[in-house]
Design a binder for these strands. Structure first.
Lengths: 161, 161
DNA sequence: TATTGTTATACTCTATAACTATA
DNA sequence: TATAGTTATAGAGTATAACAATA
């Protein structure tokens, strides 16, 4: 990071005029903030994503996590190692297939996730400082509805590879 | 990249319910696509961002580019080297201060940028497959309006550090 | 002495490739 | 033989630190 420190974000007019660049930039800025914002909950952006998946989508295998995060299995192993050491998740071998390990969220993990949700929501709203509360709701709705079709395949019980 | 290849994106329900994760994920997916999408124009996401800044914001110094991209100066040097070798931009020493080098876009660069704009726009629309044309326009508008305040400081003539 | 651009080096992160155990 | 998880290695990308030219 080029020695900025503060959150004095700035954006080019070129990016402002191009939706694709805008979206990429917004994601970048949000992740930058996440390091600061989520620090209060002891999580980084990846741990936040993992906890959210386990809580909402149900206990999954580590390979399922790797697929949803679009990261190599080795990355997930390290992340789960850390979360488990802190008592936020637990690994339990699947009796039906003892190669698999189901990852479940603990009570402490649920609490930390709730706090992280609060911080992340606030960071999202703060990023789009130019919008009213009503426009922020509309933005959230459009993002969710637009990407919803991608959740159809892949998350449920037995979707194909 | 975990050996996916195709663009069979998927997203977790956990992320769908959390605006911050949604935004970060959308940005990620778009950048992934960019490698494929922009390939037709010979640019990657960074080169696209740089050309857009130079064209819309006017000829700037490399340090200004580094600040807007939020990357180290060394990164910009390498990127401009590449763009210059391909004849898309040109460096001209600032007569007023010969340390500075103003980077300008060439005619060829403008043409390539126009093509990249076309591809990037299409990729943006394709990403949010769940939205109608009207909703896509609204999404673009909200993104631009929300981030607009960040363009006020930093891009113009003499903003403070 | 401070700053722009440049080059060279070190570090971080990630994917890839073995390895173990279960099937 | 194939797959889930794990560990170890190698490569890509980046920031940091030195350097040269100009102010």
């Amino acid at each position: 990071m080029p020695t900025d420190g503060g959150s004095g974000h700035c954006i080019s007019r070129g990016a402002l005029r191009r939706a694709a660049l805008l979206l990429a930039k917004a994601g970048d800025l949000l992740l930058q903030d996440a390091d600061r914002t989520l620090a209060g909950s002891g999580l980084d952006a990846r741990a936040y994503a993992i906890l959210s998946i386990i809580e909402t989508d149900g206990p999954g295998t580590q390979q399922e996590l790797a697929r949803l995060l679009d990261k190599a299995p080795a990355i997930v192993v390290a992340a789960i190692d850390d979360l488990e050491a802190r008592g936020l998740v637990a690994r339990t071998r699947d009796p039906a297939d003892r190669r698999r390990s189901r990852v479940t969220i603990s009570a402490a993990g649920t609490a930390v996730l709730a706090e992280a949700d609060r911080l992340a929501d606030a960071a999202f709203d703060a990023l789009f400082e130019g919008l009213s509360a009503r426009e922020l709701r509309e933005l959230r709705r459009l993002l969710a509805r637009g990407l919803e079709p991608m959740a159809a395949a892949g998350t449920g019980a037995g979707a194909a590879a």
